[in-house]
Design a protein around this nucleic acid. Structure first.
Ligand SMILES: [Zn+2]
Ligand SMILES: [Zn+2]
Ligand SMILES: [Zn+2]
Ligand SMILES: [Zn+2]
Lengths: 133, 133
DNA sequence: TGAGTTATGTTATAACATAACATAACAAGC
DNA sequence: GCTTGTTATGTTATGTTATAACATAACTCA
C-alpha cells in the first residue's frame, strides 16, 4: 500500500511527465487540484524534494522549475541544456567533465558537493525552424 | 553627469561590495533605503540587470542572489563555487571547459548561448574550521 | 515649442517558497 | 486494547523574490 506521500509523489511525477517541459511547482499544484482541490504548496514541495532526492526529477535553478528526468539511470548529476525558445530540456551525462570541475575548484581547497550546470540556448529544431530569416 | 540609473547602479554595486557575499535584491533594497527610503524593487532589479549585463555582478541562480564580480576583467562566464557554510563565492575562469561543454551539447544540435555553472560545497577555511569533529 | 521617444519612478500584484503549527498515522511498551 | 512517543502529512499563514502595468520625467530633434 502506497503511503499518502508516495501517492502525491506519483501524481506529481505524472503531471511532470505529461508536460515534458520545465514546470513550476505552482503549475503542478494547479494540475493536481483538478482531483484534489485542497492540495497546498508544502505538499507539492515535499513531493518534489523527494523526487529530486530520488533522481527522478531535476530542478532547474535558473527557471525555478522542475522537469522529469529523461535518462534511464538517475544517479548522476546531469548537464541540462535548456532551449529558451521552446523550453525543451536535454540531459547530458559527462562524469569526466564533472571531475574536471571538481579538480579545478579543488585547487583552492574547495570541496565540491553538488554541481549545477544549466546551459541556455537554442535546440536543434528551433534553430532549423528559425533559419528562414 | 551620471544619469539617475547609473547612480543607482553605483549604489547597488557599493552595497554588494560591502557585503562581499551573495546578497538578495531585497537586502540590497533595504540597504539603499537608508538614504533613499522610497526606492522600490523594479529600480533595484533594473540596476542589477544592467550590472550583470556589464559583467560587474554575477547572479547566483541557485541562491536567487547577486554578488559583485571579483575578477579584474570579467568578460568570460565564470564558474562560481559557493560555500554552503559561510556563503563565500569563488570565481574560476576556464574557457576551455566551457568550450568542452558547448561542444558536448552541440552534438545534438544545441546552440549554447549562456552557461550557468554553480558548484555548492565547502570552502577551504570552513573545511579546516570544521576539522575538529 | 511640442510631438515622439526613452528612462525612471510608483503602485500593485504575481509567482515562488517555507515557517509554524495541527492533525493523523503508526509503532512500541504496557 | 490503550497509552505514549515519533514521524508523516495536512493546513494556515506568511515570507521572499520578481515583474506587470502604468505614471511621470527627461531627453531629442524638427
Ligand atoms: Zn536525469
Ligand atoms: Zn527549442
Ligand atoms: Zn566575475
Ligand atoms: Zn566557507
Amino acid at each position: 500500500m502506497a503511503s499518502r506521500g508516495e501517492q502525491v509523489q506519483a501524481n506529481v511525477l505524472v503531471a511532470l511527465l505529461a508536460h515534458g517541459k520545465p514546470t513550476s511547482a505552482y503549475k503542478i499544484m494547479r494540475d493536481l487540484q483538478d482531483g484534489q482541490p485542497k492540495i497546498a504548496p508544502p505538499t507539492i514541495y515535499r513531493a518534489l524534494a523527494a523526487l529530486v532526492e530520488q533522481g527522478k526529477v531535476h530542478r532547474l535553478e535558473s527557471l525555478n522549475a522542475f522537469v522529469a528526468c529523461q535518462c534511464a539511470h538517475h544517479d548522476h548529476p546531469a548537464i541540462l541544456s535548456i532551449c529558451d525558445d521552446c523550453g525543451a530540456v536535454e540531459e547530458t551525462v559527462a562524469p569526466k567533465l564533472l571531475n574536471q570541475l571538481t579538480r579545478l575548484t579543488k585547487k583552492s581547497g574547495f570541496a565540491a558537493m553538488r554541481h549545477i550546470i544549466e546551459i541556455h540556448g537554442r535546440c536543434a529544431s528551433c534553430k532549423n525552424a528559425g533559419a528562414q530569416s
